[in-house]
Design a protein around this nucleic acid. Structure first.
Lengths: 338, 338
DNA sequence: CCCTGGCACTCTGCGCATGCGAGTGCCAGC
DNA sequence: GCTGGCACTCGCATGCGCAGAGTGCCAGGG
């Protein structure tokens, strides 16, 4: 177990390194933080911290920098979440309230997060599987051609073209529309497959083929769109940290374009808690020198999707966590209102 | 006027510089291209080309590199468009045909363009104002709350919530829906305002307020969404050209996030011709060392939107133009089919 | 008149040695 | 267990010299 003072030294090292971007030495530490001990003592503490793997030297005879393990301890034990100031909170709210539709909400959220944290922001669109159906619409485009429109309680809209094996009568179509809505409106997407299972049986034989086609397209849509969409912004901020990325920012940019990877790293959508993934914890090579701060957001008590920030491991964790949490809270409010 | 050989020298310089990324000297030129003259002669030609502003020296006693003006001449007079090979064309078509909806078409197009050109790809969503209305749907969400869904012939869907001053009767709503569709379905978005102008008069006094609200929301949607959406991909490719960007790639990334700027640079949507904007022609500081190759695409004869590529001025123009043109053509086909 | 080979000149980039400064580890003393 | 002192280690910036590539110019030849 580390003594109180050694933890204090670690905190000082993290803070200084995050601020200066340079390895920090024992002398500089004692000058900037009044630890009440001499550089020599700090050196001993540093040696101990290094022994335990919390800090490291880039080269012999250089200052120390925190390791991933060091940041982890800092985040878990030493740092709080820095709350936003009142004016900041008001600005967030005002900016988000101007949004006209879901796309706009997401777009604004990304801009906002990127600006507040000066890092790369990632926002996941509200998940279909965790949403409820507001309405299903069937539109006749051509004799045997329908458009299926799916609207969620979070305002998300999905559409698909359907080619039916046989044309629908106008009354059958209205019938199907009505039955479909009465069964699924207000229900969770996850429950839809069960709810529509026996629907074809309610129709005349001649329409059953077409009805089945519609239903299977509906179910397909639910499955396909489970592969969630993301919006990303603030990539220009990566260049601020060019030094932090050993090779270049290339692998980071590549990872950001691999939405599947990114979705995994944001974490399980159903988990609303704030998560910080530091460096190698990301288990994706390109992001080994980045940290990801993510949190769920939602219109009600539970999360419908996640949002977060990607930055260098050398980031201002308390500030970033504060901004991420605040933005998530306000996005949730906006979604609940609309 | 430049002699035939001098143009040939310019072409050789551009080709070599694009290939090697290094200033090209007279000796290397004569070795790689059989110009039939000696290095000394080439030197004279180079001096003339420099005098005219087509090439420049980074420092005294270094080789020459093309200027923006040199690239311009190269693109206009010396280079053709390199057509895609048959297998490439097939690959493009196959990849795009897998798309399930408009978002997917755009997403795939971006990936494809980025991969083919190994540069940053930009694709504009089909414009509303240049599309035609396929269907307008009004859904009742709550007594005095409607959702307006707008579907275009290119598969694009827009939706808006509407709070009406008074609740709609179910029959009035059906009536409005029917009248609205009979007037605007199949018509151009740009003509919609005129077409619905006198619609409120057809309704009972008690419904007119609500009808007007619906119409004004519809018109608003048309105006707002004229500010087009973009999808961007392949930003990681920028790092391949880190040397080409004097400062860093930061301003480029910033410009790419400024969608308004980018839309302007893609050019007027209605113009279907291929455009190449080179370096300073872009009139936006951040993109002064990039070139933009853009072209319109569309389902019919005319363009509904643009797509293109952003890369360093030192790019393979014939190849890039070939890829951009081919992709635009196939996207147009896909849109026409769906 | 245009092309060519030769020559002197200019610059950049690279390798190498040097010196400086920051920072460390260790040890003896309080 | 803390402190001051001391020797040691590196990294980094600086300066120098050299090789290589490329140029401009000039006189000579087809």
């Amino acid at each position: 177990m580390l003594s109180e003072r050694r933890l204090e030294v670690l905190r000082a090292i993290v803070q200084d390194y995050v601020g200066t971007e340079e390895p920090v030495g024992s002398k500089a530490l004692t000058e900037r933080h009044n630890l009440g001990v001499s550089p020599a003592t700090v050196r001993n503490d540093m040696a101990a911290l290094e022994e335990e793997g919390y800090i490291a030297q880039p080269h012999t005879s250089a200052g120390r920098i925190p390791t991933d393990k060091g940041y982890r301890l800092f985040v878990d034990k030493l740092a709080g979440v820095k709350p936003m100031t009142a004016p900041e909170r008001r600005a967030i709210q005002n900016f988000l309230e101007g949004a006209v539709d879901l796309d706009d909400v997401v777009a604004r959220t990304v801009r906002l997060l990127a600006q507040l944290t000066r890092q790369v922001a990632v926002v996941q669109y509200p998940s279909l599987t965790r949403s409820t159906v507001r309405h299903v619409e069937l539109l006749s485009m051509a004799p045997a051609r329908l458009m299926l429109v799916l609207i969620t309680d979070t305002g998300r809209v999905e559409q698909r073209m359907i080619d039916c094996p046989a044309p629908f009568g106008e009354t059958s179509l209205a019938d199907l529309r009505a039955r479909l809505n009465s069964r699924v409106a207000g229900r969770r997407f996850a429950d839809v497959p069960q709810l529509v299972q026996d629907l074809p049986e309610a129709f005349e034989a001649e329409d059953r083929g077409a009805v089945s086609t519609v239903l299977s397209t509906l179910l397909e849509t639910l499955v396909e769109e489970t592969e969630e969409r993301l919006m990303i912004g603030g990539t220009a901020n990566l260049t601020r940290f060019a030094h932090d990325f050993p090779l270049s920012i290339r692998p980071v940019l590549e990872a950001l374009e691999e939405q599947v990877v990114l979705l995994k790293l944001l974490g399980e959508a159903k988990d609303p808690a704030m998560r910080v993934r530091i460096g190698h914890e990301n288990a994706y090579e390109g992001l080994n020198s980045t940290s990801i701060v993510s949190v769920g957001y939602g219109s009600g008590g539970e999360a419908v999707a996640k949002l977060g920030v990607v930055g260098p491991t050398r980031m201002d964790y308390p500030g970033t966590m504060g901004a991420v949490r605040a933005v998530a809270r306000y996005v949730g409010q906006i979604l609940a209102e609309s």
